[in-house]
């Protein structure tokens, strides 16, 4: 049962990991993107649209689905959808210097609306009885895991049983961690979020870094939505099923004190906390809800502790939430 729990915890954690890695990269540039829940949602529905189009095209043409295309089309449409969302946010907050909180919240409203609109429309198109779209075929491609994983007992189940997007999430987080701590561009990005005036004086193109980090961050977060439908939910999209995972991803950013490496473990922990109630015997429904509170409580605790300890390395980027205008200084 433990192995099953770990496996489910990881699968719960992966969307959060995508979301928080994307948000960490964004926040490192000094932009608090509260649109992440919307972006993840759009990432999911964009993937669904792509998959839906391809599945239908194949069905109507009467031939089987090409594995590579079945993955690539949803993948790219997910990236495109979340990139567009990121661009809206950037344009408003970086170029037009709009309030980040308001823009982010509006983006989430918009993103969820966008997702539900297209989700609803697709459901109507399929004429299905249930309020959901089922893309099992595409999902099967996404969920393909190593064939020999089953033969490796608990080891296979805990480490090798996931679809490729799960490994990609971990890989991206590790890459992000290395990028932020070991590369020149990462250094520059951190400088932009900490002290844009200094970065500007050092000849760093502040706006470019803000745009790139927000857009790339959005695309990464969008993949979280894609993983959720295609892998976790077995290719079944129903409106609002994504729940509060987007906000949980933002909580994870704080929990991980803005470090993608910690976010990997944190995401599994959060994933575990999210489902742990299913594994505690004789727990009634009401207590389950209390357990779901745990990730948020833990996050507040972390937030309070880091602000009380005032350890500089663990603080949010100094310029988080503030827009930069060179001539203001």
């Amino acid at each position: 049962m433990i192995t099953a729990f770990i496996q489910r915890a990881v699968m719960q954690g992966i969307p959060l990991l995508y979301g928080s890695t994307g948000e960490i990269i964004t926040e490192k540039s000094g932009h608090l993107n509260l649109g992440i829940p919307g972006i993840m949602y759009v990432g999911g529905i964009s993937g669904v649209i792509g998959a839906f189009a391809y599945e239908n095209a194949c069905t109507s043409a009467g031939h089987g689905m090409n594995g590579a295309l079945a993955i690539l089309i949803p993948f790219l449409s997910c990236l495109l959808g979340s990139l567009l969302m990121g661009l809206i946010y950037c344009f408003l907050t970086v170029t037009l210097r709009a309030n980040q909180n308001v823009t982010g919240l509006a983006l989430t409203t918009f993103g969820v609306g966008f997702g539900n609109f297209f989700g609803g429309s697709l459901i109507k198109l399929t004429g299905s009885e249930l309020p959901s779209i089922t893309l099992t075929k595409t999902s099967d491609f996404f969920r393909t895991s190593l064939p020999f994983a089953k033969n490796l007992g608990w080891f296979g189940q805990v480490f090798l049983s996931y679809g490729f997007l799960a490994y990609l999430a971990v890989a991206i987080s590790i890459a992000a961690a290395i990028f932020l701590s070991r590369t020149r561009k990462g250094l520059h990005l951190r400088a932009v979020g900490e002290n844009p005036a200094t970065a500007d004086a050092a000849g760093i193109n502040v706006e470019r870094y803000k745009y790139l980090s927000t857009c790339i961050g959005s695309m990464i977060a969008g993949l979280g939505g894609l993983y959720y439908v295609m892998d976790y939910a077995n290719g079944i999209w129903s409106n609002d099923a994504f729940g509060d995972r987007g906000w949980l991803a933002i909580a994870l950013v704080i929990f991980a004190v803005w470090k993608p490496g910690i976010a990997i473990l944190g995401s599994f922990l959060f994933g575990g906390l999210y489902i742990v109630h299913n594994y505690i015997p004789n727990l009634d429904f009401s207590k389950q809800e209390l357990f779901k509170m745990a990730p948020y409580l833990v996050t507040i605790l972390v937030l309070v502790i880091i602000s009380m300890r005032k350890k500089r390395e663990n603080q949010p980027p100094q310029h988080l939430g503030l827009n930069y205008f060179r001539e203001e200084r």
């Binding site: 250094l187 520059h188 951190r190 900490e194 200094t198 760093i204 500089r312 100094q318």
Partner: peptide, 21 residues
């Protein structure tokens, strides 16, 4: 001073340069 507080001396010194990191 135009320095980033949470960076080390070296990190601040190489900030903005294009050479290999």
């Amino acid at each position: 001073f135009k320095l980033v507080d949470v960076f080390t001396a070296t990190e601040n010194i190489v900030l903005g340069l294009e050479e290999k990191y």
